[in-house]
Simulated assay, not measured.
Amino acid sequence: MQTLIPVERMVLSWGDEEELCIVNRHTWGGLSAPWDSEGEYIVPIQSFTDFSDAEDGAIGWGAHLFGDLSAREIERRTIKAGYHSAMFAPLRAGDATGGVISVVTSEPDAYTKKHLRVLETIASQISGAIHASELYDKAVLWTEEREQRIVLEAQKQELERISQIKSQIITTVSHELKTPLTSMAAFIDILSRNREGNLIQRQLDQLEVLRRNGSHLHLLINDLLDHSKVESGTYELLEMNFDGYSMLRSLGESFEPLVKQANQFIEVDLPDGEVTITADQSRISQTISNMLSNATKYAGEGATIRLESHASDSMFSVTVSDDGIGMDSEAVENAFDLYFRGGKSNNSSCIRLGTGTQYRQNHHQHASGRDLLEQ
């Protein structure tokens, strides 16, 4: 190139039809231009159709290739870099221009039509190889994507196979658990009838607690059977009307044996009267049971567990608090991670039910500085 054309810097650029621009792919020689540190230099094209239809090169700044605005910007940047003459030749790929090769020199008016014909000849000889290289890159990319799709499809099939096995195991285990539970529920029902009259009221109340907990266990087993619906996001909550305070009193009674066994105390502080809630009673009861269970497990011997509730026109709030170590700010951030434990603050958990069936679980913020967590 240097033996045929005055050139201090040569740039090979290729067009991007989607982005309406040409991108510098290779730069040779010359002084460092202001945009070299930015990596690839992108020149916008006003009309890619006009650019791809261009067959002739240009002495100057390539207005018929890039458009007047881009040509003036190229001129400004090139002169600022110390070059005063420029020449462009299109790189034709088939019937269309795919890129350009440009040369510049610091000497003013350095190029003639003879130089342009030489540059166009060089461009025609190398454009085929450049186009073939572009096609090769695309072919390699397509092959890599195809291989990746094959790997992903194999992984998907393996995950589906594992999921099916897991579902079969859960279904089998759930049915096996239901058999003894059904028998236990039947005997509890027989004993509760007290036909012989040999059970005192306290024992009958304890049987009622067993019956409720058996019903709760039956619900949990059904949850295992419905796990596929939960995982796919198609599980539906059962909306119903129920008395929230009555539900909480029953939960408090059902936990009394566990609390006494742990040498703890449970305080149920509920307003008088009734409050009607529209939600899934089983799921609300299950959530509050989990909170009471955690309080019983981790509050420690001699602790007091408090179950409180307040209601307004649009909100039903349930708070479970205890004397345990609670949760610090780090634990709050990870509270909803599976099997996570931790914390170093006073413990208080709260559930609030808004109107309808929406509800959220959070750690309620009090004046003592307990952390707030909403989900």
Rank of each mutant, 00 (worst) to 15 (best):
V118D: 11
I169H: 07
I165Y: 05
L373V: 13
S127C: 07
S70H: 06
D16K: 01
G244L: 07
D189Y: 04
V118I: 15
T105Q: 02
G62M: 07
S215W: 02
I130H: 01
L12N: 02
E8S: 04
E8D: 14
Q46R: 08
E274W: 00
R212W: 09
Y245D: 08
Q281K: 12
E330S: 14
Q168D: 15
A33V: 14
V209R: 03
V268G: 00
I277Q: 00
E144R: 11
S124A: 14
E73N: 15
S183V: 11
I45V: 15
F255E: 01
I351E: 04
R146M: 08
K156D: 15
E176S: 10
E153G: 09
F242V: 11
R352H: 06
Q358H: 03
E147V: 11
F316Y: 14
A262N: 05
W28P: 04
L225T: 06
M315Q: 13
D313P: 00
R202N: 10
G99P: 02
P271T: 09
I284D: 03
L210Q: 06
E160R: 09
I74E: 04
R117I: 15
G273K: 02
N294K: 07
L91S: 04
M87E: 05
C21P: 07
T234R: 07
D337A: 12
S317M: 12
R25Y: 11
N290T: 10
Y235K: 10
V173W: 05
D36Q: 11
S312H: 02
Y83K: 02
C21Y: 04
V100I: 15
K138Q: 14
N263V: 04
D68A: 14
R283I: 15
A139G: 05
Y41K: 05
R283C: 05
S368W: 11
C21L: 13
F255W: 05
Q264P: 00
N194T: 10
V318R: 01
L207S: 03
T287M: 10
D226W: 01
L191Q: 08
K156A: 14
A139F: 00
D137P: 00
T276Y: 00
C350R: 06
D323L: 05
L210R: 01
S163C: 03
R193H: 05
F316K: 02
T319Y: 04
A33N: 05
G354I: 09
E55N: 06
H366P: 01
E55H: 03
L207C: 04
K80G: 11
N294G: 07
L177C: 07
K344N: 15
H84Q: 15
D272E: 15
S163K: 06
T171S: 12
E8V: 08
